[in-house]
Nucleic acid binder design. Structure first.
Lengths: 217, 217
DNA sequence: AAATAGTTTCACCATATGGTAAAATTATTT
DNA sequence: AAATAATTTTACCATATGGTGAAACTATTT
């Protein structure tokens, strides 16, 4: 039996064999480093160190920094956007959906703000997006669904007439900005991290109430 | 007459003589580069090129990348935060203030999103803030004033009872997030830059209306 | 005009960094 | 157990990058 592509299987664009444990460790390390430092700030050496392997191994498994980054970015962004999309398309009453959207973001593991921030920062550097709009595709569908639901509710008279897309932007803004701009807001409000997080906790209900008042017929 | 500090006057922490035209060009170039690429992505060479001078001159005037960045950051952040603070403390009716807050952000020169983004990104890298909380001081005052105004309005019955700080966060979120996360939202909504900007334009009135409904007694 | 001070350019350095070839080692096949 | 393939380590390389000293040049003083 002939083995094609020997010595190089990690580079193929087909699902390779089981990912080694090493490979996983490197991936996880890459995630941590890229998340915290961004593409430009990340060092292949740091990733290797965190994974406890030699730098050459990182290249062995992922070829280049760009490739490793692309992979990492897609994974992070995919999960993140998937979550948002899921809520957006969830089959729950509208008022509840608002609470969910906001709550999910403000009650997430510590990593979440990093994630939101990372995605936005790297998208803005246009390093990641242009070639891979795929990640965002499911979100676009979510958008469509959301607009439909809003329009339905408007027709049903349970919502005042408004632009669904604008509402969506409002909701995402309210839920994500406090995470993305945590450092800025902390400074502005004069809060340390603990106080700030305390302030975010339990905010969902108030915010949902806030929004519901604004969109009531 | 003895001249102290010869050959080195640019490095003193006292207001030096007139800033040279060259010095200004370098500062402006630094602003552009740092704004677009961030600290890690910025290259001293690029700054020099953009300013049309030799790289050594950049160091002559500003010593190190860190120093140049610190200077640039303070200037950018100072102006930006100052603007927000100004609106926050402006002596206008409350409803109007909301419109102003939102409008100023959505009707600014193209540079504005970059600025907001830059500040948040660099603050998050904690590269800039910890040593220089100064920049944010005026904003803290603005915060205090804003809270007072809201509380006054609540007592006067023109506002329903709510947490002023939370309201402030809402307002800033609504105005800044669409700028900060433009790339993300564009992708999500499937809009190109032109469409996106069109969507933002004229949004202020609707948003003000939105908020006013939410906070009406 | 000589001297001094300030500005700009040139030629470099040291180090950091992404990346690689090849040897060494450890599975896996046959 | 030989042979083959996959993994890991070692020792590098080329280039990019922040930074600097000194020469060259231009203003300013005296």
């Amino acid at each position: 039996m002939v083995k094609l592509f020997s010595e190089d299987r990690r580079l193929l664009y087909m699902k390779p064999v089981e990912p080694t444990e090493t490979e996983q460790r490197i991936k996880e390390a890459a995630k941590q480093i890229f998340l915290r430092r961004g593409f430009d700030g990340a060092r292949m050496q740091d990733i290797a160190d965190l994974a406890g392997v030699d730098k050459a191994l990182v290249h062995y498994y992922f070829r280049s920094k760009d490739k490793l980054f692309a992979l990492t970015f897609d994974e992070i962004a995919g999960r993140f956007l998937g979550q948002i999309g899921q809520v957006l398309t969830a089959d729950v009453p509208f008022a509840e959906k608002i609470r969910l959207l906001i709550q999910q973001d403000t009650s997430m593991p510590t990593e979440y703000p990093l994630v939101a921030n990372f995605i936005i920062a790297e998208l803005n550097q246009s390093r990641s997006h242009s070639e891979r709009p795929l990640t965002v595709k499911p979100l676009r569908d979510a958008h469509t669904l959301f607009v439909q639901q809003v329009d339905r509710e408007i027709k049903a008279g349970t919502l005042r007439s408004l632009n669904a897309t604008q509402l969506l932007i409002v909701l995402i803004s309210l839920s994500l900005f406090p995470l993305v701009a945590q450092s800025l807001l902390q400074a502005l409000l004069g809060l340390d991290e603990e106080d700030y997080n305390a302030m975010l906790t339990g905010r969902a209900d108030d915010l949902a109430d806030f929004v519901n008042r604004a969109i009531a017929p």
